[in-house]
């Protein structure tokens, strides 16, 4: 197991998240895609910490822990927004939310 194969796995995870965020129309799928991209970034932080020159300094681990906390806050607010939008418009399809279209 080398660093580059780990980075390839993380890039694949990021691109699957990007695919979900760009091509699905359901708001919950978009949030799932964003969470996947954040997880891929965390995997990169941990991988570079483990393979880096100073693994005694837990900097990468700290950044990953903080990123997980921020991702949890983002998911909570995002899902609350999905519920609030659903209450107003009775839809979660992001293509139908075009009130601001000029």
């Amino acid at each position: 197991m080398t660093l580059s194969i780990l980075l390839v796995v993380s890039a694949a995870l990021f691109c699957i998240g990007l695919l979900a965020a760009l091509s699905r129309r359901h708001a919950i799928f978009i949030l799932i895609g964003i969470e996947m991209m954040l997880a891929a970034a965390n995997l990169n932080f941990i991988a570079f910490w483990r393979f880096g020159p100073q693994p005694q300094q837990p900097t990468g681990v700290m950044v990953a822990i903080f990123a997980i906390a921020i991702a949890a806050a983002e998911a909570a607010v995002g899902l609350a927004l999905v519920i609030a939008v659903y209450r107003h418009y009775r839809t979660t399809n992001v293509d139908e939310l075009d009130q601001l279209k000029g």
Partner: peptide, 10 residues
């Protein structure tokens, strides 16, 4: 719907 241009970008 499914937006195929997202696949191309990814």
């Amino acid at each position: 719907g499914f937006n195929w241009s997202g696949v191309v970008v990814a």
